[in-house]
Structure formats: C-alpha cells, structure tokens
C-alpha cells in the first residue's frame, strides 16, 4: 500500500521520468478516445430505451465521412505518440562511448555481474550514480530478462547472443532487480538488487570487494591456462590468427563474407569456432563450448579487447 501511495517516487533515472510522462499522456489519450463511447452508449441506452418516447426521426444507417473521421483522427493522434515513444526507444540503443562497461550473466536461477576491475557479485549490482552504465548480457542456459522497474527498463538475456542495456541512474538507493522472462522452476525468486551509490561510495565498494586483477588480466590468465596461447601466442608455430589488434577490425571469412571482430564474433569464435572461419586459416580450432562458461568467455573477450591496440607479435604500442 505504501508503494501505491508513492506511485511516481520509484524513479531512479531521468529516463524513468520520461517513460512515466509518456505513459500519463497515453492514459489521457486513452480516456479521451474511449470516453465518447462510454458516455454515448450509456446515454443512448437511457434515452432510447425501448418503449420510451423520444425523437427517433431521421436516423441514419451510414455516413462515410463520419466513419473515415473516427478512423483517421484517433490514428493520427496515436501517430504523434508513436514518434515520441520511438524517440525514447532509439535512445536505448545508443549508449554513450564513455559508459562504464559491466557484464551480466543470467543462469538458472541467479544473476552474476562482473565489473571491469574484475570485481564479481551475485544477485546484486553496484553502480555509481550519475554515470552511464552499459551492461552486456549473456545467458548460460535459457532466456532470462534483466528488469529494473525503477529504471523502467528491461532487456531479454538470450543464450547464444550478447544483448545490451544501458542506463544512467541518478538517485542513490537500492532498487529491485528481477528476472522478467519465465526461465523455469525458480524464476519467481531469481532476483536481487540494483544498488546505486555515490561515485565515492562506489569506489570504496570496488576497493573493498577485492579482485584477482582486472577482467582483462583474469582473461589473460585463462588464455594461458586453457591453452589458447599455444596457438594464438606470439611464439606459436601453429598457423592461427593473431589476436593483437584484432578487436573492432574487419575479418575476411573463408566463405567470402567480411565480419567485424566485435564481442559477439569473439564469443562465437571461442564457442562455435566452425561457424565463422577466418580466411586463410585451417579450421582446426576446437570448440570450448563444454569447457568454458559465459563468465570465462566474457573474461577472454575482455582480454582480447585489451589487445586492440597491440601489434601482432606481442609488442604493445
């Protein structure tokens, strides 16, 4: 009940306020479009009740212009709202370049988060207020959906592909963070909290959380442990693509296509290496599908990303 009274209070971002305004506008539009129906039906039912005297002369059975107008006017009104709403939606696909990059992995039935410094947490996500945060979402098993009602945002987490969600939380506080897409037995309890902190508190939290090195550094460790360096390392004699300077560049494939080496491409190349074979290299890479979880893959991707400006052969710029 207290939540009902603070209907509009749970706004953790500017975007949430914009969605609420849009929703209120739509509610008004809905009332304006439906009120004539409710009022007139009731009025007619009373006034023209059978057996009651009323002026029923000149009743018409069709009027094309009237009908066209009550088709066109509501439609045009909704188109105005469509432009407003679609504008807000397009913003959700354009995270600022300087956004803090966080990884999230959904698995039955928990959320795991990775911060760039390597800090990891389960079912809680700490973020700094006032700063844009872009969350890369991966699923270990079925489809989940990361939903933060206070941000008025959700994004499905789809196995086999990275999706993204970005936001800028303004108000420090704790907000519910839940799974919105039915994902099996314990779906209803797959949730936790979004903890928005002042940047200073967030920095303190990061320091206290502890880490074995940045995400990229953890990826570098995995890169050696899992034997990746045996082929992709500088000293390797195997004919494998060098990973230095790869991230973000175009990659010609054996089938003639050219793809960009983005996060998705790197992930797929580790887990489904036969799907997109780089031109000029034999298709000898084994799959790591049953070896590496999505969290480890995200660490490897972070490592390969960190090599984006390195020179093939090992030297950094």
């Amino acid at each position: 009940m207290n939540r009902l009274l603070t209907f509009w209070a749970g706004q953790a971002s500017h975007h949430a306020g914009q969605v609420d305004t849009l929703f209120l506008g739509l509610a008004v539009l809905a009332v304006l479009l439906s009120a004539p129906v409710f009022i007139l039906i009731t009025w007619f039912a009373v006034k023209y009740r059978r057996g009651k005297p009323a002026d029923r002369t000149h009743a018409v059975n069709r009027n094309v212009w009237l009908e066209v107008s009550w088709a066109a006017i509501p439609f045009l009104a909704t188109v105005a709202f469509y432009l407003w709403s679609t504008g807000l939606f397009i913003d959700l696909y354009q995270p600022p370049a300087e956004a803090l990059a966080i990884n999230a992995v959904g698995k039955q039935w928990m959320w795991k988060f990775q911060h760039p410094g390597g800090q990891a947490e389960i079912n809680e996500l700490h973020v700094p207020a006032g700063q844009a945060v872009v969350v890369t979402l991966a699923s270990q098993d079925v489809i989940h959906s990361l939903f933060v009602p206070a941000l008025r945002l959700k994004q499905d987490v789809v196995p086999g592909r990275y999706t993204r969600l970005w936001f800028r939380a303004d108000a420090a506080g704790s907000y519910a963070l839940v799974c919105a897409q039915f994902c099996g037995t314990d779906h209803a309890v797959m949730g936790g909290q979004l903890v928005v902190q002042t940047p200073a508190d967030y920095a303190r939290w990061l320091a206290a959380a502890g880490t074995d090195g940045s995400l990229a550094a953890q990826g570098a460790v995995l890169f050696r442990q899992m034997g990746c360096s045996g082929c992709h390392g500088a000293a390797s004699t195997v004919h494998a693509p060098p990973l230095e300077g790869l991230y973000g560049r175009p990659v010609p494939l054996a089938n003639g296509q050219v793809v960009t080496a983005d996060d998705q491409y790197l992930r797929d190349s580790i887990l489904l290496p036969q799907a997109q074979v780089a031109a000029g290299y034999p298709a000898i890479m084994p799959t790591y599908q049953n070896v590496l979880g999505e969290e480890d893959v995200l660490k490897l991707v972070a490592y390969i990303k960190s090599l984006a400006n390195a020179q093939p052969g090992g030297g950094h710029e």
Partner: peptide, 16 residues
C-alpha cells in the same frame, strides 16, 4: 476502433 464507434452510432435513435 471503427467497430466500436459504429456500434455506438447504431444505438443512436434506436429502440434499446
């Protein structure tokens, strides 16, 4: 929407 508005108009001057 057309259907709903047309039903409403049907009631106008009817014997309900």
């Amino acid at each position: 929407g057309i259907k709903v508005y047309n039903w409403t108009a049907t009631l106008y001057k009817g014997h309900i």
